[in-house]
Amino acid sequence: MKPKIAFFDFASCEGCQLALLNCEDIFLDLLELVDLVEFREAISEKSAHYDIAFIEGSIHREEDSKRLVDIRSRSQYLVALGACACNGNVQARSNFIAPAENYQLVYGEEARNRVQIDKNYWPLWAHTRVRSVEEIVKVDFHLRGCPMSANEFLILVKALLSNQTPHFPENAVCVECKRNANECVFDKGMSCLGPIAYGGCDAICVNNGHVCDACRGLLPYANVDAHNELMLSKGISEEAIKSRYRLFCSAEKMSQD
């Protein structure tokens, strides 16, 4: 029997699933080997057990949390797919703003008042805390990035299907920048989160003339103090630095303080 693979989406743009559909050649090869049992972007079958469950999106409401626990209980491997699932992504920036203030920012002052006094709007409050998948259930593997890398996806699936443990080095983006002989972003007069961010993306943003904003999350050994000093020494304000750290990584435990 072919292994059962499923994709589940929570709060996300589903861009990672689309990134996968974009590499049709790999994907069609893969479909020969597995049963794709849940994949909202393509099909609508259901199953009781999953060999590999891919979770896309960050977790906001209690009902999402329960759904996730249920998926976990029915899955052999659970993989956090993409930046939303791994480290909260941009939507987790709201973790640092009082909920009522958020509603005001988006919907105006009336909304701010209404969510506080009108009972019908209270469920909205549940959206106020954005969590990564790992905060709720055990995650076996992370496929990081916004969007995830199709290459890493393939490495993971090939390994799991052939009973090997996939290995993703925990190296900074700088490693890949050097492998590509990129000029350091700091030498070009800009600033970069590459020294403290998970690589594995082949430094795609820097390769194309941009900077790294750590969409893959901060490394477990990230020397944030030294990086903060470095950014300050480039004349960047403390507030701007903080905002930069929070862009993609606000659901990470280390950036909570």
């Binding site: 090869d29 020969e32 080997l33 393939l154 900074a172 490693v175 050097k178 020294p195 020397n223 030294a226």
Partner: peptide, 28 residues
């Protein structure tokens, strides 16, 4: 103040350590 990013190694003319990777093709 070290990021452990490996830049010093990777730009060094006498650093030669390498890792190897095995990759197989799916081909159905």
């Amino acid at each position: 103040r070290c990021f452990s990013c490996g830049t010093c190694n990777l730009v060094c003319p006498t650093c030669y350590c390498f890792e190897t990777k095995d990759e197989f093709e799916l081909e159905n």
